[in-house]
Amino acid sequence: MKDFKEYIFRIIITIGAVLSSILVLLVFFYILKESMPFFREVNFKEYFFSDSWKPLSSNPSYSFLPMIGASLYISFLAILIATPLSVGCGLFLSFNTNNKYSKIILSFIDMIAGIPSVIFGFLGLVLLVKFLEKNLDMVTGESVLAGALLLSVMLFPYIVTGCTETFVKGKNIYYAASQSLGVSKWYTMRRIILPFARKSIFVNMILALGRAIGETMAVMMVTGNSPIFPRLLGRAETIPSLIALEMGTATYKSLHYSSLYAAGLILIILVLIIQVIAYMINKTGMRRIR
């Protein structure tokens, strides 16, 4: 009887595992299939080395380069802004408050992650874009900078949660020893905890990067969506914004339609590369700690 139950349970979890992996493959496969007409029709040089996105012009040109550039630019900038703040916040939470408060604060930070991105986008449009217009003397505030600042706020909770976990782990291992040696708290944080958590911080940055590249709504609302090469105070359009904006209106089965699937494929590949890098680093990092 017990064997039978276990057998049933085993079948159920196997089906679950197989189904979910098939689902991932199906999505991938479908996007690939839909983007095939584009890759067959359009020369490789054209979608990487031409400089403009004009899918509907009489002389169409399809270049993903401005969008890839904008996606990477905005995401990296957001990570650069968010990481120091998050690491500082994580150190504060694990060393400078008692456990009770840090748990409360952490749960509030986690709540930021639960706010729908369209709310962030709306706040960005109303507050951030206006702020940039006033303070940087821009005619209009939609820019790479606005997107990156907004995104950094959205990424903050992800990096904080990941880092704090490692900081606490490091504290449990080293803090008692360093205290008994009479080393100051700040020295411990700087010279022992930060090097200890270096890999973890990096991995969290990269995971957040994967999320940042895929973020659509909030970024779309504050970057102006102009398919041109990104400059810090200029407008830009990310790959997700491109897809979200144009997919609804692209003529069914046209080259424009499949080019958007191709953009999606490029996005997936970008994120996949990032995930693999994070995985590799995480693996070597963990081994060293042990």
Binding site: S52, W53, K54, S57, S58, T140, E142, M220, M221, G224, N225, S226, P227, I228, G234, R235, E237, A244, L245
Partner: peptide, 13 residues
């Protein structure tokens, strides 16, 4: 007509 709208126009969703 055949003239393109400039690339740095803001595209509203």
């Amino acid at each position: 007509g055949d003239v393109e709208v400039k690339a740095d126009a803001i595209q509203a969703p």
